[in-house]
Design a binder for these strands. Structure first.
Lengths: 160, 160
DNA sequence: CGAACGCGGATAGTTGTCATCCGCGTAGGA
DNA sequence: TCCTACGCGGATGACAACTATCCGCGTTCG
């Protein structure tokens, strides 16, 4: 059970976008994080389709957060990249074999699926409780207040 | 982010084993659940290596739970099949690029990794709170008390 | 001894992730 | 008007993981 590495990239990009003054192009985000430009573009497109991010086309274009960073939860970012499907998929094996449960008893999900769903709900709730703004605050806590000052300078240099 | 289908098989097998009077061979478990015998064998070997299940070799051999069903958590079964690695793997991209965080600031995990780890901890806690005995009780609740009577009969017919 | 069983390795088919490239449309500046 | 920088979507391919099967080996019991 592994999460795509694109999730990590997407989250960090959202944190950076929360500090940007204008649109940030893919190439800048890729250079900043030291990752593949073309592949990062794919994940940014996913964020765009999910509505978390807005793209400005044409020259001087780039990406912007669509909402305030405090309104964007980590869960939204993860699901934009990973998709909404739960990790556990019940195949209803209780309906297989010689002792198959009667369909009448299968109107509700089986106990195994219920327990798995509850665990994933706990996971999603935890992610939903963290916003991009919280993550940005964590960076300041770890790296000092001037951490984002350097970032804004570097982004502005790109716009020359 | 998908979980292996083998997890579902393994969990259902544990519930069945909790109701068995003696060793149950792989072929019987596979027939009962309508799944591939050879592939299920792989997952049962994983449970065996994890110590959740004990194998009796030779003729009339098969699998037994090593502990009381109330002592076996769903988390143990999931991790026996899926492995212990977390779904999110931090690649420390904060140390990449022109504005890399100083190594000194990276002694602790980055905020993103911390949030992800907290969510996975919530997931594991939820799974740890459910035992195989709880799942068996759920089957009785859904299918009536005689659900496992038929199962025990069917398993005994195999030993006939 | 023979039959039934678990164990481990070898082997593929299929799917999903990771990554790259190209052509297209769009917007701003010279 | 043209050029350039940019996002978008499709096509493509390398690689790993999951899914599935088979075989030979050792063990146990009648």
């Amino acid at each position: 059970m592994k999460m795509s590495a694109g999730v990590e990239w997407a989250v960090h990009c959202c944190v950076v976008l929360s500090q940007a003054d204008g649109p940030v192009p893919t190439a800048r985000l890729a250079e900043l994080h030291g990752v593949s430009r073309t592949y990062l573009a794919k994940h940014l497109q996913q964020l765009s389709r999910a509505g978390l991010v807005r793209s400005t086309e044409g020259r001087d274009g780039g990406y912007l957060l669509t909402k305030d960073a405090a309104e964007v939860s980590l869960l939204e970012v993860v699901q934009a990249v990973e998709g909404p499907e739960p990790a556990f998929r019940c195949t209803e094996i209780r309906q297989n074999g010689p002792l198959a449960a009667r369909p009448a008893a299968c109107r509700s999900a089986c106990g195994v699926a219920r327990a798995m769903a509850a665990a994933e709900h706990a996971w999603r709730s935890s992610l939903a409780g963290v916003s991009v703004a919280d993550l940005a605050a964590g960076v300041v806590e770890d790296n000092g207040r001037q951490a984002f000052v350097g970032l804004r300078d570097w982004l502005a240099r790109g716009r020359g």
